[in-house]
Nucleic acid binder design. Structure first.
Lengths: 351, 351
DNA sequence: CGAGAGAGTGTAAGCGCTTGCAAGATTACG
DNA sequence: CGTAATCTTGCAAGCGCTTACACTCTCTCG
């Protein structure tokens, strides 16, 4: 079932069918109607691969993310996709699960499909890949990694600023013992977040007691990390999570162990995903405008009148603090030990 | 940058380059090495569109879902993708947001890309589309809709069975006033779930008092629905949600209004998404084996030795009840009204 | 009424890759 | 050392579609 079949049936040339289907050039209305009818009758669907090959235009964007499960990435994807559709573009997603090797093959897959723009929103990144993409003509957007080049737009979040707001806030509430929960400490951007936490903590209170643990991204990882902290002997009054997704698991674990949040321990997240407002207590977090990021990506990758197509610029986004219910003044004494299953123990006056 | 450039550089024909790249036919080792080096030096990436066109094999699967945000769909996708990768396939996702029109265009997009298999995991579905796909040669898997045909595999969940287990359980706990929260009641599969609830409720207790409300899929929708119920005057002792994703919002709203779960109201979900175990109280729900579904899809769409490729069979999956913390014996009296600052009125004795 | 201007359509040359076929190069053997 | 068998490789025909260019009509005007 191809163009030629349709052409034959409509008694025209393939060129005319193509023109009708793409709405280009002038075609007599009666002819066009005949073609459309033939298409209908034959249930013809144009072969997009061939179209791409011949036309040279893919009208397809690629987006690579580290963890589709984390709503943070999904939100960006959805915004971008909506923008893309509005402009007649498709977007292909690839998920790396934070595996650098997958990033490489995903990039090549996208390149192979000849996407007309590529967004790389990941935490793992090899410099060689950045260089490779920089040498391409392809409009590319990097989130959180790399540097601006002629064809590369860079979107960065001022993570330090966000973390600073969190720590300042927590410090102001009297917290002096904090734990930081992260994931994939071997990946530079993530390790950097941890370092930032440590530096800022030291800056705000030289005698601040801190500890850091890492687990997998997601609620399960958060839960495990919380467990690890709780059984380590260290008793933080605040747990700072690298993102909301992990914080959800932390909240759960604290609840399960009968530790009050924020009474005994305050918890913070990062990103401000939708879920943050739906857990109890609702998460205090740093807001990262994911929609804005999605729009920025679209703007950079989709050519258009008022677009900064492949502008090679650099955008810095500043997170804002969102205070909800999971944080409060630090308790005077150390938080109580977990109380055993059977008895829910004495009530503490949290302060 | 194309095959010819590489061929020229390696001083061979394009045919040879192609053979090397695809590992087919016999090529002298020294030649192959030369080709590989040329590829490397030129940073050549094969054009997959052209490859597909010429080869006729796309090794790409398509998957269309209603709501990628709902972990239920995402889990299926991830399992399928893992299986696909293992077999050298890619999978393209499309998201419809429950809009029938988007389903149609997504299907055509997939058809246009000449996927070698298509999974349609949605709740909206036009009979005409089913017919159209049935007429194709393409291996297709439908979830929850349509009937088996030669090229179509059908996966269905025995929703009634799952709902029955929930209602039976709730009924056994003494619940006699229930509310059902759903979404998209205009879509048949979803409306059917509601009907099933109603029928089963009537069956278990002819005098059961019920009410149903609908909102958007997701926590926000769940929250709105819960609000609607609470302000309606009807005082259920149990709220049955069409899925876990919405239940999350319900839990939040009840908590916010000071209503104890499961003390005052029991809440159930459906699907058993990971999040169900991470909210507090953890959700009682019906487990749907999403991994199994993902594997089944892969089995049906990817040709292989022990695969039932395009077997046109029908699989019925039975959900199992998972009891967690969100359900308990129905309270004797009506649940207390929300206790709020502004004093939200008198206590009603329901029934 | 003839020429120029469009309008409508067809012809054919690719787009980059795969692959059947056949020729040229090697190797094996008697 | 000749010949057949086996390897390697190149040739060239598409895959289905877009598009520059050319051609045929039909009008419009002077």
């Amino acid at each position: 079932m191809n163009l030629e079949d349709v052409a034959k049936r409509a008694k025209v040339s393939t060129a005319t069918v193509s023109r009708v289907l793409n709405n280009v050039g002038r075609v007599r209305h009666s002819t066009s109607a005949r073609v459309l009818q033939a298409v209908e009758e034959l249930k013809y669907t144009p072969n997009l691969n061939a179209r791409m090959l011949a036309g040279g235009q893919s009208r397809t964007l690629g987006m690579i993310v580290s963890n589709l499960e984390n709503p943070f990435f999904l939100d960006i994807f959805r915004t971008l996709e909506a923008d893309a559709h509005r402009r007649g573009y498709e977007v292909l997603v690839a998920n790396t699960d934070y595996r650098p090797q997958y990033l490489v093959s995903s990039v090549h897959l996208m390149l192979g499909r000849r996407v007309s723009g590529l967004a790389v929103v990941v935490s793992e990144m090899k410099p060689s890949l950045i260089r490779e993409l920089a040498e391409t003509q392809l409009p590319v957007v990097f989130y959180d990694v790399g540097t601006a080049r002629p064809n590369i737009t860079n979107i960065k979040v001022d993570y330090r600023k966000g973390m600073q707001r969190i720590i300042e806030y927590l410090h102001g509430l009297g917290h002096r013992r904090m734990a930081f929960i992260g994931h994939h400490p071997t990946l530079e951007p993530l390790n950097n977040r941890k370092r930032t936490f440590l530096e800022l903590a030291a800056e705000y209170a030289p005698r601040m007691k801190v500890m850091t643990v890492a687990s997998a991204d997601g609620p399960l990882g958060g839960q495990n990390a919380a467990r690890e902290i709780l059984s380590s002997g260290f008793r933080p009054t605040a747990i700072v999570c690298v993102n909301d997704f992990m914080a959800v698991g932390v909240l759960r674990e604290l609840h399960a162990q009968g530790i009050a949040v924020p009474g005994d321990i305050s918890v913070t997240g990062f990103d401000d995903i939708g879920l943050a407002g739906f857990v109890s207590p609702a998460l205090t977090t740093a807001h990262i405008p994911r929609e804005e990021i999605g729009h920025l990506i679209g703007e950079a990758l989709i050519p258009g009148p008022r677009s900064r197509h492949a502008a090679g610029r650099e955008v810095l986004i500043e997170p804002s603090l969102v205070v909800r219910e999971s944080t409060a003044r630090a308790p005077r004494a150390a938080p109580r030990r977990r109380k055993v299953a059977a008895s829910r123990a004495r009530t503490r006056s949290g302060r």
